[in-house]
Write a protein that binds this DNA or RNA. Structure first.
Length: 429
RNA sequence: GGAGACGUGGCCGAGUCCGGUUGAAGGCGCUUCCCUGCUAAGGAAGUAACGUCGCAAGGCGUUCGUGGGUUCAAAUCCCACCGUCUCCGCCA
C-alpha cells in the first residue's frame, strides 16, 4: 500500500500518478478525509486513556494507604471515562479499518519514467532478439500441442481425465526436459541468489499479507477443510519469509530464488488460450526475488531483468522485452518489464517473465523494514520480483523452435549438462 | 489424533500463583566515552518499534505470540486462535 503520509502531504501528486493507470482518483479524497477523522478521534481517545492511567495509579496508591472511600470515588469517575473511551475506540477502530481497506485498494504509483498508456497496446518494445519471421521452416510451424502429443512427451488427455481441463502431464523425455529447465533456471542464479524451497500451500493470513486476498480469491485454489490456499506464485511465501522483520542494511540486498508449483484457477480467462501449455492451472516456475534499499532498487531491477532475459537468450529462443505502460502494470508494481518468447508453432508471443519493481508498496503491507547503517530509525525495503523461468511456455517454445524436419526435437546446448547425454527427443523414452 | 508444558525486548532470562508508578529486574551483545604502549581486563553512560502532537527538547498513546473479555487498573485473571516443546499413537 501507499504511504499515508505522502497522501496526506501531497494528495494531488498521488492522484496524478494513479490517474496514469486509468484508475479513479476519488479514493484519494476518501483516504484523506478518513485519515483526518481517524487521527482526530485517536487523539481524543489517547487523552482519555492517559487520564484513566493516571486515575488508576492514584486508586492504587489510595488503596495502599487505606483510603478506600476516596478510591471508590475515583473509580466511579474512571469507569465513566472508560465507557467514553470504549465508544471512541470502536469508532476509531472502525474508521481505521475502513481507511486501511480503502488504502489497500489503491495501486502503487507508476514510476515517473514508466511509459504512458492504459492498455498492452501502449507497451513499449525495448528490444527484440533472434526473431526473424522468415527464418522459420515449416517443421517449426507445428504447434507443440500437436508435435509433443505425437512424440508422447505431453499427455493432456489423461491429465484432463484425472484433474480436469487445463491440467497437463509431461512424460518421458518431456518430463525430463521440464526437470532440466528447473535445474538450469536455478543453477544459473546460484552465484547470487539463495535457493528456497518454500511450502506451496499457505494460510489465509499469508495470502492476505501479500495482497493476493481478498482481491484475487476467485483466482486461487482453496483447501476448505484446513483453510489453506495453494500459492499462485512463489512470491507469496518469499514475501512472507521476512514479513514483519527488521533487517540490517548489511544483509541487503537479500536475493532469494525458489522453484515451486504455481496454481491458478484462471477464473477470468476460461476458454482463452486453452490449447496445450499456453495457460494451465498448475505450472512450475523459478522465481527471483529481492529485498533491497531504495538506492539499490534500480540496479536490482536491471539485474533481475538481465538474469531472466539471459536464461531465455542462452536457450536460443527468440524473445522481446516490453516496458509496460502504466495501465498494464499490476497493482503492486511501479515499473515492470515483460519478457515474451516467440513460439513459431503457436505463432504468437508468450509471456514468460514479468520483472517488477514494487518500490516500498509491498514492503509496507508486509511490514518489512531495514535499519540503515548510518542514521537512525527504520525504513521500508524495496521489493522486486521476476520469473526466472516459467517452465511450460519455455518448454513449448523449445519444442516448437528446436523441431527438426524429421520431427525430432534437438536440445539447446545449455541444457545438455542436465539431460545426461540426451541431445534430442525422438520419442517419449 | 491423545496427554501435558510453554510463548516476555537483538539474544538469554526474572516477573505471572497473591492484578497496582514494570515498557518491563539481571545478564549477554551492541554504541559512545574514560583508563591503557596495542589488545584484553576494568569503569561510566546509552541501547525497541510504531502512532500522534511539537520548529525542537520533549509530551501522550499502543505493543510482554494474536484477538476478544473481566476490572478503576492486565505481562499477570478468563476465553478463542496461532505457534513451540515433551510423551504416546500413526506415517511417507
Amino acid at each position: 500500500m501507499l504511504d499515508i503520509k505522502l497522501i496526506r502531504n501531497d494528495p494531488e501528486a498521488v492522484k496524478a500518478a494513479i490517474a496514469r493507470r486509468g484508475e479513479p482518483t476519488s479514493v484519494i479524497d476518501d483516504v484523506v478525509r478518513l485519515d483526518a477523522r481517524v487521527r482526530a478521534i485517536g487523539t481524543e481517545r489517547d487523552d482519555i486513556r492517559a487520564e484513566i492511567k493516571q486515575l488508576s495509579k492514584q486508586v492504587g496508591a489510595l488503596h495502599k494507604d487505606g483510603r478506600g472511600d476516596e478510591a471508590a470515588e475515583l473509580q466511579t469517575k474512571s469507569r465513566a471515562l472508560g465507557e467514553r473511551e470504549k465508544a471512541l475506540g470502536e469508532e476509531a477502530d472502525g474508521l481505521a479499518e475502513e481507511l486501511r481497506s480503502t488504502l489497500l485498494n489503491v495501486s502503487n504509483m507508476p514510476a515517473p519514467d514508466a511509459p504512458d498508456g492504459l492498455t498492452e497496446a501502449d507497451n513499449v518494445e525495448v528490444r527484440v532478439e533472434g526473431h526473424d519471421p522468415e527464418s522459420y521452416g515449416p517443421h517449426q510451424r507445428i504447434p507443440h500441442w500437436e508435435s509433443a502429443e505425437e512424440l508422447g512427451i505431453l499427455d493432456v488427455d489423461r491429465a484432463v481425465r484425472m484433474s480436469g481441463s487445463m491440467f497437463v502431464m509431461y512424460r518421458g523425455a518431456g518430463a525430463r526436459l521440464l526437470r532440466a529447465l528447473i535445474s538450469y533456471g536455478l543453477d544459473r542464479n546460484r552465484d547470487a541468489f539463495e535457493e528456497i524451497r518454500p511450502p506451496t500451500v499457505v494460510k489465509t493470513e499469508t495470502m492476505t499479507g501479500t495482497g493476493h486476498l481478498p482481491k484475487f480469491a476467485d483466482d486461487a485454489y482453496h483447501l476448505e477443510r484446513d483453510d489453506l490456499w495453494a500459492i499462485p506464485t512463489a512470491e507469496v511465501p518469499l514475501t512472507s519469509m521476512v514479513a514483519g522483520e527488521i533487517l540490517d542494511e548489511a544483509e541487503l540486498p537479500l536475493r532469494l530464488m525458489a522453484h515451486t508449483s504455481c496454481f491458478r484457477r484462471e477464473a477470468g480467462s476460461a476458454g482463452r488460450d486453452t490449447r496445450g501449455l499456453l495457460r494451465v492451472h498448475e505450472f512450475d516456475k523459478v522465481e527471483l526475488y529481492s529485498f533491497c534499499t531504495p538506492e539499490q532498487a534500480q540496479d536490482m531491477h536491471m539485474e533481475i531483468l538481465a538474469r531472466a532475459e539471459g536464461a531465455i537468450r542462452d536457450l536460443g529462443l527468440a524473445h522481446r522485452v516490453l516496458d509496460l505502460a502504466c495501465g498494464d502494470i499490476s497493482g503492486a508494481g511501479a515499473r515492470t518489464y515483460d519478457i515474451e518468447v516467440f513460439a513459431p508453432g503457436a505463432d504468437r508471443w508468450l509471456e514468460v517473465s514479468s520483472v517488477s519493481w514494487c518500490t516500498d508498496y509491498q514492503a509496507r503491507r508486509a511490514n518489512v523494514r531495514y535499519r540503515p547503517t548510518e542514521g537512525k530509525g527504520t525504513r521500508f525495503v524495496h521489493s522486486l520480483n521476476g520469473s526466472g523461468l516459467a517452465v511450460p511456455r519455455v518448454w513449448a517454445a523449445i519444442v516448437e523452435t528446436y523441431r527438426q524436419p524429421d520431427g525430432s526435437i534437438r536440445m539447446p546446448d545449455v541444457l545438455l549438462p542436465y539431460l545426461g547425454g540426451m541431445t534430442e527427443i525422438t520419442g517419449a523414452r
